[in-house]
Design a protein around this nucleic acid. Structure first.
Lengths: 251, 251
DNA sequence: CCCAAAACGAGCAAAAATGAACATTGTTGT
DNA sequence: ACAACAATGTTCATTTTTGCTCGTTTTGGG
């Protein structure tokens, strides 16, 4: 059994049970505990799992939300997408972040880095409270209660004053002709401004978003730099997107 | 079973039942009562559960947020001050809110009212997520991690664009000669802007703030309209403040 | 108010897990 | 074929965790 296979199985086991011991995994995978420990350490470095004494778990209980998390759709995929996106950041750069669960997964994975963050999402700011080397600028704006995101002209004007190296946003639908879409038009507009201020645009979207069309258009597919998704994204759609000059990465 | 897993299960059990005994948990998790006690103690240190004699229970929702030590001090007084201030609001008006624990107490007490809120405090916005008839404008700005407040020119500029009926802020010190003061000068400055945009200024301060002087000046005592405090405020200071035209109310 | 049962904290020793160094195996490129 | 390298397993000293004992504190019933 090769390393990558073990890693996959460890993540799969965690997805099922939430936490596993080194011993269990050693038996399950016919590997020595030393190897399992090395595997877990590596997965932890990539922020895919959290290493603990005796084993590994999916998330640090300190940040475990009282609700969902484990119920959330495609949370393993989102976590891996977030971890990959976080690992691709250049230290010291300024990144703009929208809202959404996938982006939040990325934020938890990037806490140890050195960055400047501009965001329209209140949750992102709060999550970064214990990130010692990341400063956070909240755009301000009308507080959307459902998503805890900030919209409107205050958000827009604040964004007009910053330059971003990368804008990273989550979406609800991606379609070759209809572009990147979401449910709320005010949020779509703010995301459009975010995009306009950035040299590069990264989109985070698990495979369930492919081929979906939502009411509010954010931008066209050709306008983005990178699309970070999971292994299950439909191949022909991925090919079509790449043909538009977008680099598609599968976590 | 690894420690982290036990911790998760303890929290899960609490989520279901509200409270559990050490014995129950010991059986359920196949661990000794000593271990369970240590687990609960650790979870309690991280403020995830509340340790009690014989077991553990869920956090008291009213005092759970990130302020810890400060919240406990003068908790009762702050709550009464907050309740009184909330009861004095006129429906439909626009109020500006700063940060701090006393203001937060007021915010929890005003959720059912109909109001427009402008605030520099991220916690205030989140707290009002389930207030159906209050719309919230967050000013934006640099996110101060210690207090979760927003400061800097973005906050200032947003405030320049609004007119407030009342500005309500908490302070760390009030003194006849040295005025209203707080620890952080950036926050003091934002509060000053907040005050400048309002027709009326209400200050919330429990009695421990009287006679205190902190590094950063917000404004002079004569500039405020109402001071809402508790019964234990020193009488001679209150008299001096009233002489400056401030109406002092004791909750 | 008092007493017995239950729960607790602290110290301790056994057990489990870890990290680091080293040996072995397998793979890759030349 | 051979050297360089990565991955894995093994050993051992160290650290962390756990269960137990015992004296003390808290709780709740009479």
């Amino acid at each position: 059994m090769i390393k990558a296979e073990r890693h996959d199985l460890i993540v799969a086991e965690l997805a099922k049970r939430g936490a596993v011991s080194v011993q269990n995994l050693a038996e399950l995978l016919n590997a020595s505990s030393a190897t399992i420990r090395r595997d877990i350490a590596e997965l932890d470095e990539h922020n895919i799992v959290v290493r603990t004494h005796g084993g590994a778990m999916l998330q640090d209980r300190n940040q475990e939300l009282p609700f969902d998390a484990k119920v959330m759709a495609f949370h393993i995929e989102k976590r891996r997408i977030g971890a990959m996106a976080a690992s691709m950041l250049t230290p010291g750069t300024t990144i703009g972040l929208g809202g959404g669960t996938t982006v939040m997964n990325m934020v938890t994975a990037m806490k140890k880095q050195t960055l400047h963050v501009v965001t329209t999402a209140v949750n992102v700011a709060l999550e970064l409270r214990d990130a010692p080397d990341i400063d956070v600028l909240l755009t301000g704006g009308v507080f959307r209660k459902r998503t805890a995101e900030l919209v409107g002209h205050v958000a827009e004007r604040t964004l007009q004053d910053v330059n971003l190296d990368v804008a990273i946003i989550g979406i609800d639908g991606i379609d070759l002709e209809r572009g990147l879409t979401t449910y709320d038009s005010a949020e779509a507009f703010v995301n459009r401004v975010l995009i306009s201020r950035a040299r590069e645009v990264w989109i985070l979207a698990d495979h369930s978003k492919f081929g979906q069309v939502r009411p509010a258009i954010i931008t066209e597919v050709g306008a983005i730099s990178k699309l970070i998704t999971d292994q299950n994204a439909p191949a022909e759609l991925v090919a079509g997107i790449e043909k538009l000059g977008v680099s598609v990465l599968a976590a």
